[in-house]
Amino acid sequence: MHSYRLTHLKELESESMHILREVAAQFENPALLFSGGKDSIVCFHLARKSFFPSKVPFPLVHVDTGHNFHETIKFRDELVVEHGAKLIVGSVQESIDQGKVQEETGYYASRNKLQTVTLLDTIEKHKIDCAIGGGRRDEEKARAKERVFSHRDDFGQWDPKNQRPELWNLYNGKKRPGEHFRAFPISNWTEMDVWQYILLENIAIPNIYFSHEREVFDRDGVIYANSDFMHLKPEEKPYTMRVRFRTIGDMSCTGAVDSPAATLEEIIEEVASSRVTERGSRQDDKRSEAAMEDRKKEGYF
């Protein structure tokens, strides 16, 4: 006789699998937004688990800002081949070339804001009615209020004050033509849960999460990877050090951490003792107190 009790990781896993199956059942043409970061990798792993022995019944969508770490792109391509997944790539460079968006200029130029336009275009072009994302509610204050099934109007906008109530595990995915949804299967996970789950399930992640030597430079107390995309100020001198990335966004807005952590166990120890949130090294959230809320209303992930 044993007790019928799930550990919190297994309970979260079960909840996420239930959500992913609801998405597959309720929508005609869902897709998984895949950034190559750990959260979207975990979502893909959960999707594989949810439908096995069938393949994941929806494609991956990657919004390629053109400023990605090349390690991320390599990882993405290998994953697609290994699991026979379908990949759709939306290109921010294309949106810029077509004149749909204008590239930011100056030292703080980032393509983060531009990718919203590319994302919405890709959703429209491929008639995606539900975009599954790896957003978590613990990441940021505005995300703490996001529903698991998040309704978007035909402009892709989020109306935080007019969200559908979401009760028990009943998810209302009903919509009118032209409207679409975002679904967040790992809403209830924390950064720590994600790392522990990666360890528990032995999930492969891009190598830049682990400590490595890289050319970096300092700006406003943040360590950035040096690359062709970065426009250095005269006083910013690149140097080499051992770093790793705690989140993976664009090279132009993701800060590195000074870290010797080279294994999952060491990363978990580091996360447990960290005194800064993972988005604390993301320049895009610091622009104003309501930065994330503004971008979400416009249709950001």
Partner: peptide, 14 residues
């Protein structure tokens, strides 16, 4: 997993 806190974390409930 050498650290006990890691083990502990894998056995928590919600």
């Amino acid at each position: 997993m050498k650290d006990t806190s890691t083990h502990g974390y894998l056995d928590m409930d919600l």
